[in-house]
Structures are given as C-alpha cells and as structure tokens.
Write a protein that binds this DNA or RNA. Structure first.
Lengths: 130, 130
DNA sequence: GCAATATTTATACTAAATCTAAATATAAAC
DNA sequence: GTTTATATTTAGATTTAGTATAAATATTGC
C-alpha cells in the first residue's frame, strides 16, 4: 500500500531538486523547469512539492526566509545559512543527544526532533569581501 | 546617542509583548490591543514590531509557521513547539558550544549564532489527549 | 511659534501559498 | 476495449503576512 505515484510533473520536479545542490525554493524550481523548456501550472508545482514531501522523497526547509526551500537529502540533518550571500549548506554533525535530553527535562516535552538553523559567514564570503 | 523613542503606540505594543507569555504574532498583538480598547493602523503595528526588534527590546521568532512571533526575552535562547496544541515555550538550556565548534570545522563558516526549534508534545497534551 | 524631522494612518501593493472547479489523465470494472 | 470511477493538472481566484507610499499628524529644535 501507499504506493508512490510519480507523474510526469512530479518526476520532473523531483529531478530538479535532486540535481540542485542549493536547496531551491518553489519559485526557483519553476524557473529551472522553464530553462528546460517545461512549464507546469503554478499550483501543480506546489502540489507536487507537498506530495513529494509527504512521501518522504524530499524535505521542506523553513529557514526563516519568506519562502520554503526543498532538499533532496531526507536524512535528519541541519542547515547553515550565510549572512552575506544567502547560500545554504548542509550540517551533518548531529545535534548532541545529551542536549535534547536536557531540553526534555527542562520543558517536560516529549521531543520528536530539533531543527537548527546556524547563521554565519561562509568561507568564500570571508575570503573575498573581507 | 541611539536614544530609543517610545511613542504611545510603541509603548502599548511593547507592553502587550512583555505581558504575554505565549509569543504572540502580529495579528495576536492587534487582537489584544483591541481587547484593551486601543486600535492602531495595521502598518503601525508592523512598523513598531520592527522598530522594537531593531532596538533590541523584543525578539522576532521565525519558527517555521507562516507568521513571525515576538518574544520579550531578548537573551540568547531557543524554543520548543508542541506538535499538538501549537504552544511555544522557552528553552533556556544552551546549545553546546562544542557542537557549534564542530559545525564551524565541518562547514568552514564563521558562526554567529544558532536558532533551534525543537518539536515535541507538551506535558499537558500528553496527559490529556494521551 | 515656526521650520525640520519623525511617526502614524489609510490604502495600495507584493510575495508565497492555498483553494476551487473545470478539464484531463489514469486505473478499475465489466 | 469501452465505460465508469478515481486521481491529477490546470487556470484563476482567494488568503495571509507583510511592505511601500504618500498624506496627515505629532514631536523636536531653535
């Protein structure tokens, strides 16, 4: 059951996200589709992004910007955003379990997961702009 | 220099946020002002929230919901959101510095700060709904 | 009090995303 | 292999959160 139904549109959108390494927004997905000569209805892109997210094929990132970004990496990991150029990179070092346990003790919550957005300046920006 | 100019409107909005312990959104601030019999222009509330944030009197929280929330606690701390009822609580246990150092090594970024949103189920929801 | 500056107000506008209903496409039943 | 049922796509309207603009009002410095 729960078979994944990858229509032409959904497959094209999934491909874009899997081939991009900069966590594109919905608007950027539409732009890249157009570069490939494809064009789907606005709503179809949003529907597909939600479908792919629900099916666990991609992840929706809410990093505090106006628009959500999408990531082909679906394993638990965090993100770091450059304050200067806005680029978003993966953070694969896990948040310490001991911290989550301390938070559970402090708050009385049963914790499912933690989403961290680290802010800083990327190596490239530091070298160029000073 | 940089004197803080607290107009009637800004003071009223600051008071609301300082008296609320549930991190209200702009819409909720407007609602609570109306309950007090006050009503400011829509844009004034947004301008004031930005002014108060810029002045460091409140903090803007972007927790992945559509709307920003505002917090009278301006010291560095994190937040935890209940998946069931949506309440937002403070997390005062600091993110381990060692993790941030590991992230800096991994990514090559100079890190300014980290914002974490922990998700779980609050004690109240666990006891009631099961 | 009067000019200069800052703030508020009402309104228009923008961006991101969702909703709706009709049109298509796909799958299931016979 | 049509017919029926279900799922998906489409175009366009709608919603939500927030910003921009320009006139009106308030505040400050002389």
């Amino acid at each position: 059951m729960n078979k994944i139904n990858l229509t032409t549109q959904r497959k094209a959108i999934l491909d874009i996200i899997q081939q991009s390494h900069d966590h594109p927004t919905a608007a950027e997905v539409i732009e890249r589709l157009r570069e490939q000569g494809r064009q789907f209805a606005y709503g179809t892109v949003y529907n597909s992004l939600r479908y792919l997210t629900d099916m666990g094929l991609i992840r929706e990132l809410k990093l505090g910007e106006a628009a959500s970004r999408y990531d082909a990496r679906t394993d638990e990991h965090q993100h770091i955003v450059c304050r200067r150029c806005g680029r978003v990179d993966e953070v694969l070092t896990d948040i310490p379990a001991a911290w989550l346990e301390a938070v559970a003790r402090e708050t009385g919550y049963a914790i499912d997961r933690a989403q961290a957005v680290v802010e800083g300046v990327c190596a490239e920006c530091r070298n160029s702009g000073k």
